[in-house]
């Protein structure tokens, strides 16, 4: 029996954290985020990302501004708000802590 069905919700839960990390690194638009995740376990799609970003925006963790593009319509560039940066720091700390717990436990 494969563990995959139990891993899927873990990935799903971590996606938000990873999106915050990507947006935190520099101002990005959605195809940048998709590309960054494409070759990882967290590869995702616009149908997932847009609702997630709108949720983060509603929680006041990210904000966007419109930026003209040379090819096609203007694009939404996302970046973290101060609250978003605080949350990312908290998540980073938490991640390090639970990582340590997971590798220490059972030894």
């Amino acid at each position: 029996m494969t563990a995959e069905p139990k891993l899927a919700p873990i990935r799903k839960g971590l996606l938000e954290f990873l999106v915050l990390k990507i947006v935190g690194a520099r101002s990005v638009y959605v195809p940048d985020i998709l590309r960054r995740l494409a070759d990882t376990e967290f590869a995702t799609q616009e149908g997932t990302l847009y609702p997630l970003l709108s949720k983060l925006r509603r929680e006041n963790l990210v904000e966007y501004r419109w930026q003209e593009s040379d090819s096609g319509p203007p694009r939404k560039y996302y970046r973290l708000t101060q609250a978003g940066r605080d949350q990312l720091t908290a998540l980073d700390d938490y991640w390090i802590r639970i990582n340590r717990t997971i590798s220490d436990i059972g030894h």
């Binding site: 839960g13 995702t44 799609q45 149908g47 609702p51 997630l52 509603r58």
Partner: peptide, 12 residues
């Protein structure tokens, strides 16, 4: 196919 169907993130 590339865009994927809409997935609603978990309730906040």
């Amino acid at each position: 196919e590339e865009i994927g169907s809409v997935q609603v993130p978990d309730a906040t």
